[in-house]
Design a protein around this nucleic acid. Structure first.
Length: 558
DNA sequence: ACACCTTTGAAGGCA
DNA sequence: TGCCTTCAAAGGTGT
């Protein structure tokens, strides 16, 4: 993680999580071995990311590369990139932000003042200016943040524009704090969500902007007090989805005694609803941003039923039972892969025109493995920050708390799945055809030259402690499955999930990329070489194959 | 309407 | 310690 101020203390336990990548030589070797394949991919990747990236200076290329690659709408996307590149050029001279190792962090997207709006008043998707971002003192939930969840605007057309209140000091979690706003915002002006024009004339509280004003990026229910852009908002803008949605009625901070330093205080105050922090006289706090991880079960389960303004929730005493029901649902922080998924999903969808998340996720999973260490490290770092922030915001929160929160956990799909699982299996079969799918896997981002950050912030990256694990994955059979677990089809039925690591895609087959220290997640791992191997096969047929596969599986019989 | 599918990673519980 | 389970996102699909 970029040490924004160079101080070690600012990084919340930055050193507590090393990212033990495999031997660097391994990675390089792998890369070199696949250089030919990747070379073939360069064109593909270039077509995906090069337009505006070329505009960026080499020093900033990494930053540019990390962002709107996922932009499916090439036109608006290019616009965005242009604005972005321009902003980059403007920003880089001042050394405004010093450690943009993680492109997602240092940048803020603010409406371009020159031509930011569409005819309907919403911000043009392309009219964004990316700025380096210092530690924001405030999260500024804009009207965009108070988006109506029913907004039909597609994510890729999101108007979401994180806007920043620039602070004067850099906070370690700066990258995690961004702002959403589809309105012009200047540090000297009050948050737009507090501006009178967006206050509900009836309640006196910020109203939910008209859908036309709203950013589809934040599918908040009308009563939502706001939302913040995700730390990875730079890519999320293309996702059209918020990292976290906000409970319509706000929420109560589960941990009132949260200890905060000054920075944390500003962070929390800016990210939490008044219910969580000291409630201001009106229902909305000055910054009005609850933490995105907090999601009211109501909004999650019944968004339509919560069209009540936050103030109404606050004003009307709710029965104890109901209050219990409204207990905030604190989502788990996203892991590295999830962050990656959010970023790349749109891109994959654009490339493959696939919509089914299951298939897309498979591709993403392979791409994930095809990522270079540096690239993955970025996401690991982001994820780490997410967790750190999350842990600070919710010290007592446990992932266990969310157990059972879902409607119903999917039933186990054990290897010994019974015939009654046929329907499911038939569907799964499709995705089990890894070779076929690999064809769909065109890791456009796999090439470090395109996406890697030159300066790897992660100490782990800098010094991969992992002894030469060698590129065992190179020897990985192509049949490596995406899931060594029981979900797998019978072909490669493997022992238990964990034991699956002993299979061909054994533990030695840790992905060529990093594995966070001490995680057992390796059980899910698939050899990165697999994806790399198939990089050369990437083609336009990916969509067809996957789709055909999906269709075929419907008719597949054992 | 809702669970499932799919992916990886994180975390907690259990043996 | 290792294994197992659950959840995080997401959107089409199936019931």
């Amino acid at each position: 993680m970029p040490q924004l101020n160079g101080g070690g203390g600012d990084d919340l336990g930055a050193n507590d999580e090393m990212i033990p990548f495999k031997d660097e030589g391994e990675q390089e070797e792998k890369i070199s071995e696949n250089v030919s394949a990747e070379r073939d991919l360069d064109d593909v990747k270039s077509s995906l990311v090069n337009e505006s990236e070329n505009n960026s200076s080499s020093s900033d290329s990494e930053q540019a590369e990390r962002r709107p690659q996922t932009r499916p709408d090439s036109e608006s996307y290019e616009k965005t990139r242009e604005y972005f590149s321009e902003a980059l050029r403007r920003q880089q001279d001042g050394g405004f932000f010093k450690s943009p190792h993680y492109p997602g962090y240092p940048f803020l997207m603010i409406p371009d003042l020159t031509n930011p709006y569409l005819s309907n008043g919403s911000l043009s998707p392309g009219a964004r200016t990316y700025l380096h971002m210092k530690w924001p003192l405030l999260d500024v939930p804009s009207s965009a943040g108070i988006k109506d969840s029913r907004s039909p605007t597609p994510g890729h057309l999101s108007n979401k524009v994180p806007v920043v209140q620039h602070g004067h000091h850099v906070h370690p979690l700066t990258p995690l704090i961004t702002y959403s706003n589809n309105e012009h915002f200047s540090p000297g002006t009050p948050p737009s969500h507090l501006s009178p024009e967006i206050l509900d004339p009836k309640t006196g509280i910020p109203r939910t902007p008209h859908p036309s004003e709203l950013s589809p990026y934040y599918p908040l229910s009308p009563g939502a007090v706001g939302s913040i852009a995700h730390p990875l908002s730079w890519f999320m803008q293309h996702q059209g989805q918020p990292m976290y949605s906000i409970p319509p009625g706000g929420f109560r901070h589960p941990y009132p005694a949260l200890a905060m330093n000054a920075s944390m205080s500003s962070l929390v105050s800016s990210r939490f609803s008044p219910h969580m922090v000291t409630p201001p006289p009106h229902s909305l706090h000055q910054t009005g941003i609850p933490h995105p991880a907090i999601v009211s079960p109501a909004i999650k389960q019944e968004p339509s039923g919560d069209n009540i303004s936050p103030s109404m929730h606050a004003k009307s005493p709710v029965p104890a039972k109901k209050e219990e029901d409204k207990k905030p649902h604190i989502k788990k922080p996203l892991n590295a892969f999830m962050l990656y998924m959010k970023e790349m999903r749109a891109k994959v969808v654009a490339e493959c025109t696939l919509k089914e998340s299951a298939a897309i996720n498979q591709i993403l999973g392979r791409r994930w493995h095809s990522l270079s260490r540096e690239e993955q490290a970025k996401y690991y770092e982001l994820a780490r920050k997410e967790r750190q922030l999350h842990s600070q915001l919710y010290p007592g929160w446990s992932a266990r708390d969310n157990y059972g929160k879902r409607k119903k956990r999917k039933r186990e799909n054990k290897p010994d799945s019974k015939p009654e699982d046929f329907s499911i299996r038939s569907k799964k079969q499709c995705v089990q055809y890894l070779p076929s799918e690999k064809m769909c896997d065109s890791p456009a981002s796999s090439h470090g030259s395109m996406l890697d950050s030159p300066a790897t912030p992660s100490a782990a990256l800098a010094s991969p402690a992992a002894p030469a694990a060698t590129h065992s994955e190179q020897a990985q059979p192509l049949s490596l499955t995406t899931k060594p677990e029981g979900r797998m089809h019978h072909h490669f039925s493997l022992p238990g999930k964990a034991s699956g690591s002993t299979s061909s895609s054994s533990s030695s087959s840790q992905p060529a990329v990093s594995i966070p220290s001490g995680t057992s997640g390796s059980s899910h791992k698939v050899s990165g070489a697999t994806s790399a191997y198939f990089e050369s096969f990437c083609s336009l047929s990916e969509k067809l194959q996957v789709m055909s596969c999906q269709k075929q599986t419907a008719n597949l019989s054992f």
